[in-house]
Structures are given as C-alpha cells and as structure tokens.
Simulated assay, not measured.
Amino acid sequence: MEDHRLRIATAILAYAVQKDTDAAVLCNLSGIDFAAVEQNRQPAITPARLNELWTHASHLSHDLLFGLHLGESLQLAALGIVGEIIKTSSTVGEGITQAAAMAHLFTDLFSVSVEHHTGTFSIQFNPLTEGDNFSFRQTMDMFMAFVVHEMDGLVLEKIKPVAVNLPYAIKDGDLREYERVFRCRPVTRANTWAIQLPAAYWNKPIVTAQYELQQALLQKVTGAALPDVNPQSLQARIYRYLLSNAYLGLASLEDIAANFNVSTRSLQRKLKEEGVSFQQLAEQARKSLALHYIDSGNYQFKEISYMLGYNELSAFTRAFKRWTGTTPASYQKQGFTVRKHEQVLN
C-alpha cells in the first residue's frame, strides 16, 4: 500500500505549504527524504513516517483539524483512482458502489460498505486496524470530508448529509467547524464512521465533465501566479486556492478563513498588510478563470457566468467588460481571429 501512503503524504505536504509551513522542515521532522520529494523520486513512506507527517503538519500549521480541512480542499484528481471510478460511473449510486468495492486499492486503513435504509443510504467506513491515534483520526476526517465535498462537483449542488457519525468526542470549540465542513451537526461517540445521505442522491446522474474541469483547473493553477508577488505570500496562496477549487464555485472569505484556520478579521488584516483585499483577489481569480474558460472554447457564456458565481449573464458581461474593456463575445471573436491567422502562417 506504498502508493496510497505516498499520495496521502503528497497531499499533506502540498496542503501544509499552502498553510505557510516549510515543506523541508516538515519532511525532516517526519523522516522523509525532501530531496526525493522535490525530484519526484517517490520517497519511501512507511506507516510510522505518515503518522509523524500528520502530527508535525498539524503542529506546524497550528491546526488540530488539519485532516478535516485537507479533505475539504482536496480535488478528485488528487487521489488517482477516485477519478477513474467517477469517469466510468453514470450515477452517484454506481460511483459509490464501485468505490466501496475498490477501496482496498487506495487504502489499507478501512473498507467501505453501503447500507440502504428507508429514505436514506449510508456510506460506512470500516476500520481494518485499531485506529485510536491522532493520525488515524486525521486520515478518517480527511476521507469523510473529501467524500462530502467532492460529491458537490459530481451533481452540481451542495450535498447535505442527513447525518455524519463519528466514534469519538469533539471539543465544544471544534464542533461548529465540523458542522460547517459536514453541513450537519455530527453525531459523536457513535458506533461507526458513516455518512448518511438522502436516498434521492442515489440515482442522481454524475456530471463527468466536472472531473475534466477539475483536471484543467489543477493544470492551470500549477503555473498560475500573481505578477510581482512572492509566491509564498498569503495573497498568492489564497489566489491559488481560489483557482484550484473554482470548479465548485469561488470560495467565500468565510470558508477560506476557516480552512486556513484563522478568523475572517485576521485574514483581512493580513491581506491588508500585503496591500490587497480578498475582494481584489476574488476579482483577479474570476478574470483569470473567465479568460481561461473562453479561450478553451468548451463553455457557453451562460455556463461560465454560472461557474463564476454570477446569477445573471448580464452581470458577468458587465464584470468582463470592466476587466478587459470588451465583451465576452468580442473577446472570443478576437481570439478566434488570432488563432485562425496563426494557423494560416503555420
């Protein structure tokens, strides 16, 4: 199961860097060869090293809910096999059934089963080892949050579980954050790890184009940068977060602050110290995404408007004209003319 541990470790490192943690220090503390990570040489990730990585990542980022927040921010493409399941399933039920049967291919920590009830069905996470330590709980939080949030993109709506069962107590100060991420108040000290959902979701068609959109955005964000801005600055990290998660709609200030484990006031203050506001970053992200979507030629203006969070096409058109001095239609026509001219020259 080395592959799955490496995928999880890579996700932990990437997210820790996003939360202003030094990856080299984190690897060194966890006994992981940082040079191998940098050079994509697939360093050996033992269970003990993964446990250390969870512990130190949480400590250095000052986030005891690190796994929960990581699961919220992950994309389908990040865990490999999940994307393959999605691409070969037509409904949510088919996807979940396949995922349950293939869970052993991407984790040795738990198996997945599905139970049907009157009016609901539940996704059960069944531990395969005695998992009462910190890293096991972080891992389970990550996978459960990942399932809830990634289903959003598959059916193009906010998934709201009927219940989420967790077999441990949650501190009063953390309960609200679990409720925000899971979108329901979790049942603590339960007998199982489980997500219970309305039966209506079972036959919902999966919008496979969303997986392709995630891949395109992840490729885009890899090279995305704000001009003349330190790539490790808070504004740069938030900008990349906005882009990479934009397939579900642009994240709000409140959601980003909670995911980065700071208050909205503190986040706004830190951005102000860097000479920028969240609203400016959101506008820049919308502009970048709008140009990307139009240049791809795969989306109608109405779809782009919806994906960027505009309720009316006219509102998107006004914003686009403010950004570029022209309308989306004129911009697209100009781009088509340029591409056609380049083809003739070649």
Rank of each mutant, 00 (worst) to 15 (best):
A282V: 08
Y178C: 05
R286G: 01
K204D: 10
M102T: 15
E52V: 12
S233L: 07
D228I: 09
T139F: 01
P43K: 02
K220C: 13
T208H: 11
K160V: 14
A257H: 14
V276K: 06
T264A: 15
E254R: 08
G223R: 00
Q138G: 04
N51F: 10
L68K: 02
Q219R: 06
L217M: 11
T317E: 12
Y293R: 03
V276T: 15
I81M: 12
K19F: 07
P198T: 08
S111H: 09
S233C: 09
A23N: 14
Y293L: 06
T21A: 15
S89Y: 10
E115N: 06
K321F: 14
Y241Q: 14
E52R: 13
E150D: 12
S296N: 13
S90L: 10
R322M: 11
T120C: 10
N261V: 15
L154E: 03
A216R: 10
L156H: 11
Q334R: 09
R7I: 15
A190F: 02
V207S: 11
A290S: 12
G309R: 05
L175P: 04
W54H: 07
D33K: 03
S305C: 06
Q232G: 09
I294N: 11
A258Y: 05
A236G: 06
G309E: 06
F121P: 03
A258F: 04
P328A: 14
A35D: 09
F125D: 00
D22V: 14
M102F: 14
A44P: 02
Y178E: 03
